[in-house]
Amino acid sequence: MDAKLQYLLRLGDNALVLSQRLSELCGKGPALEEDMALTNVALDLLGQARMWLTYAGELEGRGRDEDALAYLRDAHDFHNALLVEQPNGNYAHTMMRQFYFDTWHYFLIGALVQSSDARIAEIAEKSLKEVTYHLRRSGDLVVRLGDGTATSHAYMQTAADELWMYTGELFMEDDVDAQMIAAGVAPAAAGLRTQWLAHVADIFAEATLTMPAPDAWMQKGGKQGRHSEHLGYLLAEMQFLQRAYPGAQW
């Protein structure tokens, strides 16, 4: 598969899968404003996923639009990172997953504004203000819950530790990444990792949370289509309608 196509699917699938995860909490948020925030972030990510997947479909040139790519691919054809498919867990897990993702997403999108691919650059430009808002919110919540009560602190520390092993994959360059970096389409992973670690360290210090070791053992495989069992269940729910009633429309 063309490297740029695969790179676009990674961008689109990350946004799509996390959007779906957040949408699971619609109407179930722990407080009204949290419920609205989660669904607003889900909506932004869905819009971004649509832009990436539309471009991916055009580049592929086989007549697949964003809907076909979202609803008619199976788990092994999804290229999202393992982090975004992790279950919502308790609210500490939900927010920690969001904070880890938002930090990476923010610095990535900020760099993609300079991409040598004009279409990628303009989608990034459109998304940047949204992902800035997402990161301000999740970082703020990590501080408020981490530096909150003894109970909220303990929940946040557990979530930080348990999700840590899914963060390494975001910065592991494979052949697709290498080609995109060489072409000036994507930023180098090492620089992103430095920015990511610095921001996580800042927020964790303020949140009185202990940052896990950066060189800890990390999970990998999502970007290449090797997923945890969770993705299949997520897709089963997300894709049911189009699988059962192909071509169904509003």
Partner: peptide, 11 residues
């Protein structure tokens, strides 16, 4: 800078 825009004091 990107980092300044997401510092907590910026929000």
């Amino acid at each position: 800078s990107l980092a300044a825009a997401v510092a907590r004091r910026a929000s």
